[in-house]
Amino acid sequence: MELTASEKKVLNGISFNTEEIDSGNLRESDMALLKEMRAVESYLTAKYPNYSFEITGCEPKSGTTRTYSEWYFKSAEIDRESAFIAMSEEDGDSFSIRDAFFGQLIGAPIKNYLEQFLAAEKLPIIRIDVSFWEYLGDEYDDKISPEKVLTGEIDAGNDFKIFLDDSMLKEKDYSAIKEKIKNCLQANNVSGEVYLVILSNADGDVARDRVFSDSILL
């Protein structure tokens, strides 16, 4: 069987059958992994046609309590040190696959919305981080709506971190500031969990220079 160099590299990182993998004479267990790897790559390519992907590793479900395997991948179009993750679960003769790559497409628009909403409160924002807890399948493609994710109509597990500059705050009632942010976001139908962090100044260290932090559930 013909395998690409990257497929051999991934399989050799999972299996101890190096000789068989290098020769293409795969054992049954490695054949199953190869089939799953190719299914994940095909899924990603079909779901995000404007991006190219390469599988770089895997944490198989075997030997764990998980019902799914975790496949690590990278995209040539995105410069990022850490790998993206796709989850693959057997579904009869095929696989049910989910991923969190959609966050690369909607993270910036959602951040812009949050900045616009909070601008009215005249808060000294250092930055806003946007991430998601959920992995979504092929029911959502690269046309996924940032607005529907932001409001929770599409449940992506919204997780936002808002950093404020304490040196620019006129009021120091941090609980009141927290409520102001909560009311503002609720008024704009934002859904998810927000972690508010107030640093002593704009260049402050997130751990050492934190003067207040708390969670807001929307």
Rank of each mutant, 00 (worst) to 15 (best):
D141P: 00
P146L: 01
G152S: 03
D155Q: 12
K143F: 15
V130H: 07
V149G: 06
K148G: 03
D129S: 08
D155C: 11
I126P: 01
W133N: 15
D142N: 14
D138P: 01
T151H: 08
W133D: 15
E153R: 01
Y135C: 12
G152F: 08
E147M: 11
K148T: 02
G137N: 10
E147G: 09
V149A: 09
E147A: 14
S131Q: 00
D138K: 05
I144M: 05
V149L: 07
T151M: 07
V149C: 07
G152I: 06
G137M: 03
G152H: 04
D129R: 05
K148L: 12
I154K: 00
Y140F: 15
W133C: 13
Y140V: 11
S131H: 00
R127W: 11
E134N: 14
I144N: 00
P146Q: 03
S145P: 05
I154V: 01
G152Q: 05
D141I: 03
D129E: 10
I154Y: 00
L136C: 04
D141W: 00
E153W: 04
L136R: 00
I126S: 06
D129H: 03
V149Q: 00
E153N: 06
K143L: 14
E147W: 09
D138N: 09
I144S: 06
Y140W: 13
D142V: 10
D142G: 05
F132K: 08
D155A: 14
I128Y: 06
K148V: 01
T151C: 10
I128R: 02
R127N: 14
I126M: 04
D142L: 02
E153L: 08
D138V: 05
S131Y: 02
R127T: 13
E134S: 13
D155P: 11
D138W: 09
V130P: 04
D142Q: 11
W133Q: 15
Y135A: 13
Y140I: 12
G152M: 08
K148R: 14
V149W: 03
F132C: 09
